[in-house]
Computed example of a mutant assay.
Amino acid sequence: MPFDFDQLIRDIDSIPDCSRYGRVTAVSGLMVEVGGIEKELSVGGRCIVETRDRRRIPCEVVGFRQGRALAMPFGALDGVGLGCRALVAGDQAMIYPTDAWLGRVVNALGEPVDGKGPLPKGPQGTPIRNNPPNAHSRARVGEKLDLGIRAINAFLTCCRGQRMGIFAGSGVGKSSVMSMLARFSAAEVAVIGLIGERGRELQEFITEDLGEEGLARSVVVCATSDEAPLMRKQAAYMTLAVAEHFRDQGR
């Protein structure tokens, strides 16, 4: 595989000229108070807290109190104590999807979790949290979309741009229907968000329900039920951002 020098140059250009950091002043439950960089942060912005053993925990700023920034972590706070460094990570979280993301499984931060190596970055970034389009500028529902399931095509016909909810009790086939939509629909790309699933169900869905055929044309974003609440929330935004990237390509 040829080395991507263009990607290397983009990575070098993205390195900040300097690092701005503050210190952890308090920890209460899942809330971290950070001082010293409150003027550099804003609600929705990111900071990275370093633990005693040099692990890095990404956090999201959710508010301010008495001149301190309040942040919630994307992971466990084990090892975080008073005085730990908190680095400013920027306000706008971006992802850089490409066609190489097809067939891959990523977490809520866009990091690969399938053991297939790092994900290449595309040339153009997509914000994880996009502003919704104005109601007057939204496209109308398009032509009929073949979902690959005759019963749904006949009794619940869907068109391009339309939403459809699948609601049912546990164990009656929701995952099976979703995997059939991913494998057999006329859509070129399927973006699947598995949020709040049990850990054992994730691999079962990917290997048995989705299969190699469905995974090859899909991007799976996962955040299991044992992960932090902020990770599960972020997974929903990540799923939409990846879907918007391929939507903008007409796929």
Rank of each mutant, 00 (worst) to 15 (best):
P112F: 00
P112Y: 00
V113I: 15
V113N: 06
V113T: 12
D114C: 00
G115L: 05
K116F: 00
G117K: 07
G117D: 03
L119M: 13
L119A: 05
P120W: 02
K121Q: 03
G122V: 06
G122S: 11
P123S: 06
P123Q: 08
Q124S: 07
Q124Y: 10
Q124L: 01
G125W: 09
G125I: 00
T126M: 15
T126R: 14
T126W: 12
P127E: 14
P127N: 12
I128Q: 13
I128R: 11
R129P: 00
R129W: 04
N130R: 14
P132Q: 02
P133F: 00
P133T: 05
N134C: 09
N134V: 02
A135Y: 11
A135N: 04
H136E: 15
S137D: 14
S137W: 00
S137H: 10
R138L: 15
A139H: 15
R140G: 13
R140I: 09
R140N: 12
V141L: 14
V141Y: 09
V141Q: 10
V141R: 11
G142K: 07
G142F: 05
E143G: 12
E143H: 10
E143D: 12
K144M: 12
D146V: 08
L147V: 15
G148W: 13
G148I: 05
G148K: 04
I149L: 14
I149S: 03
I149H: 02
I149V: 11
A151D: 13
A151H: 08
A151V: 15
I152P: 02
A154P: 01
A154K: 06
L156I: 08
L156K: 06
L156Y: 07
L156C: 11
T157R: 13
C158V: 08
C158A: 10
C159M: 05
C159N: 12
R160Y: 07
Q162W: 13
Q162V: 02
Q162R: 10
Q162H: 13
R163M: 13
R163C: 13
R163K: 15
M164V: 10
G165R: 00
I166R: 00
I166Y: 04
F167H: 02
A168Q: 06
G169K: 00
S170G: 15
V172D: 09
G173T: 09
K174W: 08
